[in-house]
Amino acid sequence: MPLVAALLVPGSPLPYLRPDNPPWKPIAEAYRAAATALQAARPDVLLVYSTQWIAVLDQLWQSRARVTGLHVDENWYEFGNLPFDLAIDTEVTASCIESTASIGVRSKGVDYDGFPIDTGTIVANGSLNADGRARLVIAANNVYHDWTRTSQLAAIAATTAERYGRRYAVVGVGGLSGTIFRTEIDLAQDRIAGDENDALNRGLLARLQQADVAGLAEFCADYAKRTRADMGMKHLAWILGGLGDRYRGADVLGYGPTYGAGAAIVQFRL
């Protein structure tokens, strides 16, 4: 089976850069558990979609064979730098770029030294694939693409990876509820901002565990409005599209706050 894993992970740099802060420990520890599971699944390639790589023209895909550099998050720069070293599966990426015309989407490759890789992609790769064993296919989040279009793009990426004989994992990088604290807080006291957000996040995670695929898109539309969910949860649409809308259940490896916003690591059972 070429599809070997699927993960929903957060892109906030806070648990990554400060894993010992008590409220962020559940996410940091869950990332470690997810990395172990992913290593056991032995993927050749990770199909990554991060809500933080924003595109507005065309569908962009990272097409540079090796992307290295040092990133500083524009919000959380005081917590440290984010070095990265990404290996791209250029063959699968090139084929994805050609294939999206079939759904009426024009795609472009991004192959530039110094391109600003987003925080979410760096955090996910650094946590799950620190040794660079798996190569990446990275798709941008075009803000004008909706749930369905995002799901279609993931399906194309999965089909393409399969056609090239890759063992692949689907990784959606983004948060849950997007309500943050607007004032400075004691980081050791971080929590989900608002009981309703917490309840809705837990409701979403329960649905994911139940594999209620049919109801998820509808649920997420309402959930996104009520919780300012990260990019309408399009990173979840990416995962479901990559799974072909089929999975057996899910395990929530961790759930917690990132400056009031919700974050979770979910491993899908295939």
């Binding site: 595109a55 919000n75 400075e184």
Partner: peptide
């Protein structure tokens, strides 16, 4: 330079590097 928590000001005497536009890297 969109920030979530407040209003931020560059506070380093000299900054240099390469800035690549994420939307128009071409």
């Amino acid at each position: 330079w969109m920030t979530q928590l407040g209003h931020h000001f560059l506070g380093v005497p000299t900054l240099k590097g390469k800035s690549v536009d994420p939307i128009f890297p071409n």
